[in-house]
Amino acid sequence: MTPASLQGGGPEPTARAAVVSVAVPLRSRLMFQSQTSRRLAFGYLLLAPAALYVLLLVGAPFVFSLYLAVSDANVGDPVATFIGLENFRSALEMDVFWIALQNSVIFLVVAAIFKSILGTSLAFLLLQDFPGKKLIRGLVVIPFTLPIAISVLAWKWMYDSQFSVINWVLSRVGLIGQYGTDSWPIWLGDPKLALLACIAVNVWRTFPFSAIVLLAGFTSVPLEVLDAAKVDGCSFFQRFRHVVAPMIFPILMIGFLFDTVFTLSDLSVVYLLTQGGPANASKILPVLAYQIGIQAGNLGRGAAIALFLVPLLAPAMFLFLRNLKRREY
């Protein structure tokens, strides 16, 4: 047994080094230093495969796409010249860019609200013990496991202006009129509904995931802590606010961050449902970037639109993650 291990849960490097240096003579201290370098070498060795993978396959291409964003590259012309922020300027000149930006933000916020409401309530329910829990849990995770490119097509069929099963039900229940009347909603054709319809698919697909993340959070709160709080006379909401919430906060935030990033860059739902129509009412940034950059071939402008949010998001995310990690200790 060394002093360090007797310290019992003292992972702070400085504290432990201090203990070691007090307890052992100089020769051992040199040994310790070589141990440090061995530790670092081992660490970087372990890190190397993942770091290289990400660096080569994301880092380098990322630099390339940054270069695209400041050049006049189009798909057919091998020679691209540097044009500074021209691509960003011309993006700002487009009405549709601003619409897409606004829609992306709406998409993100509205989807997040619904996902957290549905996810939290579902998590609370699944936290209980009851017969058939596994089966029900299995059923609600299905939306998350189906390949998105195909399940969106099922929604497209459910939103069909004519054969929509949703409308069929609503109409039979009497909430909307008959097919052909004005109160028959055209989910993907009404500018007021199209974006919402796309958001609904995103929520449907990801709320089970939110629920699971939250469930994990709730499970992580030790029962003793809750019981102690109960004994201390805390009400349910007090317990939630002061005990549960702080403990699940980091989990929530990580889940939220992942979801934000994936939602912002996901084009499949909108692209497959509406292409951004009618008249750009559901256009979001990735779809616009894809249509300009890839389909119409203006790589430079497409890259600028696709990367537009990065300078805004990157610092926010950095600070966020730093803070979050601090909380973990």
Partner: peptide
């Protein structure tokens, strides 16, 4: 390093697929 690894998610696939 941990944060940078996470931040790679900010790079949109619609652009990444070309160099890849």
């Amino acid at each position: 390093i941990g944060i940078s690894v996470f931040m790679t998610y900010l790079v949109p696939p619609i652009i990444l697929f070309l160099p890849l």
